[in-house]
Nucleic acid binder design. Structure first.
Length: 595
RNA sequence: GGGGCUGUAGUAGAGUCGGUUACAACGCCGGCCUGUCACGCCGGAGGUCGCGGGUUCAAGUCCCGUCAGCCCCGCCA
């Protein structure tokens, strides 16, 4: 039989007790981290979200509570009354925040018992993630995850305070909304009242926040769940949280300025790190040229060098053919890496093949010149020129990639990131921000044989590029911007089209006919005709920001109840089959599973 | 849809070349212990080697399939 809470009132949290409370009578409640039974004396480490404090139970002080403590096991829920006392000489534990004191218990209550937990809730035990996810409520008792979620709360609070101070108003938008073409696969929700019709869960509140600008709210924000039915990754969950913002009467510099302030505030509050402003800015074209990717990690150099024109006339056919065929030949210099083993080089080659590269040429720069399978194809002048543009010195490892521009950039850019990690150049407490701007507005989808929006269909082109919409739409750049932190895209947005004519032209370019545009987005097009202000916005991935703030390698470590890579919940067992009656009410019949 | 890694007591691991009864640690249970703090000492219980099939005199070990977790490609405006 458990003890009743009765009139016991907690006075302190365990982790808050220090020398300041010495002499105070206190009452604490929490979970038993560990019991140490010395036959006579019993020590209990009692844990709550703030930390751990030691209870000392002496039979000479109170026999009843000592006897009760003999029954106590790990994870029992216990309340203790007693006096905060300095620990005897020589028994202070400097590893604990509360290590100078202990509670001399005079009354102990067992508020609830616990089965032996399936795994030890200490910092030393590594447990398989499927076990942790099944017993998520236990895993969440551990200090690491408690800390992550408490910091998440602090960040959300900071976001609300900052945006409020900047004149933003938090407005909720519908979760049951309309499925629209473009973008990610929607999660669908069948409508019972309108049999055969479906809502979609929002991929983002994009259209609604634009409508709020038309409504004159001027500045909107929302910390909001978004849903995308796509495959998961270490930093991607099917439901995730955005810090969603939209502003009226602004250009993109205004948006970036306000948002830099938000990010700086978050880092100051959460980590005590002061981000220097303004943040770096890089055009999309320059990002690709120097780093191969549009989300460069600026914590280290290893920049890519375009050598296409320098190898066009070389005897090395692989390079020369690519160079003359519209491809790209790029290189990077891994300083001091000529000691890489054959196996390491093979691994790097395998790595770039993941991104479609056919191979990777490498050169070890030695005192006797190039040591490389491709050295023989280059004459003295060419060697000298390449050494010069790549800043090659003895001990360096040069790597070359020749392919289509898309593959060469992506593969070598990813290799650059891979090397940065491998060489230990990516400190987690080093924070390098960069805005990437001037993205292309459109990209050609060879399969669908039409243009698709790089950002989304409501993104405004650069004003100077509007004529290109008619002459060469693929060349038009967008008033879009991504915020990249340490190689991770943590946010992105754009100035929107507020002119109905431009928006219609945009749909035309995307191959969305007038009728279809009216059917899918008519409410937005109508709204643009009723005095839509110039506006733009941005959305940050709160989960990704939290990953970086906490140093988590997985997005699951910053979400209370995450899903597995197959989008299931091991705790609740979602998704599951539903009763036939439910399907009947919805007018749904399941198709036979195709094998 | 594809590539890769992992799967052995409650937990996390070892298990050699296929060969007797599958090991030790932590946890758990019992006993002892009045200054420990990942307490210590003594004793004990605990196994569908993920699952299914195959090869073999013999499979945790080799082969095929499958399931689950993780990482990646595709996908993610």
């Amino acid at each position: 039989m458990n003890d009743k809470l009765g009139n016991w009132k907690r006075t302190h949290r365990c982790g808050d007790l220090t020398a300041h409370q010495i002499g105070h009578d206190v009452c604490v409640m929490g979970w038993v981290q560990r019991r140490r039974d010395h036959g006579g004396l019993i020590f209990i480490d009692l844990r709550d979200r703030e930390g751990i404090v030691q209870l000392a139970l002496d039979p000479d002080r109170d026999l009843a509570s000592h006897q009760k403590a003999e029954q106590v096991r790990n994870e029992f829920v216990v309340a203790a009354r007693g006096k905060v006392s300095p620990r005897p000489e020589g028994t202070v534990n400097p590893k604990m925040k509360t290590g100078e004191v202990e509670i001399e218990v005079t009354e102990l209550a067992i508020l609830n018992r616990s089965e032996t937990p399936p795994f030890m809730l200490d910092e030393y035990t590594e447990v398989a993630e499927n076990i942790r996810l099944k017993y998520r409520y236990l895993d969440l008792r551990r200090p690491a995850l408690q800390g992550n979620l408490m910091m998440r709360h602090l960040v959300a609070k900071t976001v609300r305070n900052y945006l409020d101070s900047q004149g933003f108003i938090e407005v909720e938008t519908p979760v049951l909304t309309k499925s629209t073409p473009e973008g990610a696969r929607d999660y669908l929700v069948p409508s019972r009242v309108n049999t055969g019709n479906f809502y979609a869960l929002p991929q983002s509140p994009q259209l609604f926040k634009q409508l709020l600008m038309v409504s004159g709210f001027d500045r909107y924000f929302q910390i909001v769940k978004c849903f995308r039915d796509e495959d998961l990754r270490a930093d991607r969950q099917p439901e995730f949280t955005q810090i969603d913002c939209e502003l009226s009467f602004v250009d993109r510099n205004d948006v970036m300025d306000v948002m830099e302030g938000l990010i700086a505030k978050i880092f100051h509050e959460a980590l005590g790190v002061d981000v220097s402003l303004p943040m770096a800015r890089l055009s999309y074209a320059e990002a690709l040229d120097r780093f191969g990717v549009d989300n460069p990690d600026l914590r280290f150099g290893l920049e890519l060098v375009d050598i296409t024109s320098r190898v066009a006339a070389s005897q090395f056919k692989v390079f020369a053919d690519v160079a003359s065929g519209g491809g790209l030949v790029k290189a990077l210099n891994a300083k001091g890496c000529s000691s890489f083993s054959r196996k390491e080089l093979d691994d790097l080659t395998d790595f770039v093949k993941i991104y479609g590269a056919k191979g990777l040429a490498w050169v070890k720069v030695t005192e006797n010149g190039w040591q490389s399978p491709i050295a023989k194809f280059f004459n003295e002048a060419e060697l000298a020129e390449l050494n010069q543009v790549l800043d090659a010195e003895v001990g360096d490892l040069l790597m070359f990639m020749a392919d289509t521009p898309a593959v060469a950039n992506e593969a070598l850019g990813r290799l650059r990131g891979h090397l940065g990690h491998k060489l230990g150049l990516t400190r987690k407490d080093d924070y390098k921000f960069v805005w990437v701007t001037d993205f292309p507005l459109l990209e050609w989808d060879g399969e669908a044989r039409r243009h698709v929006a790089v950002h989304h269909p409501f993104t405004a082109p650069l004003e100077e590029d509007i004529p290109l919409l008619d002459s060469d739409p693929g060349k038009a750049r967008a008033q879009a911007y991504d915020l990249v932190l340490n190689g991770s895209e943590i946010g992105g947005g754009s100035i929107r089209i507020h002119d109905q004519a431009v928006q219609s032209r945009m749909f035309e370019l995307l191959g969305i006919g007038q009728d279809e545009a009216q059917e899918k987005f008519g409410f937005l097009l109508d709204a643009l005709n009723f005095g839509a202000p110039p506006h733009g916005g941005i959305a940050f991935g709160l989960d990704r920001i939290m990953m970086i703030l906490t140093g988590a390698d997985s997005i699951r470590d910053v979400i209370a109840f995450p899903k597995t890579q197959k989008a299931t919940c091991l705790l609740s067992d979602a998704p599951n089959e539903v009763a036939d009656k439910q399907l009947q009410e919805l007018g749904i019949r399941l198709r036979a599973q195709q094998k």
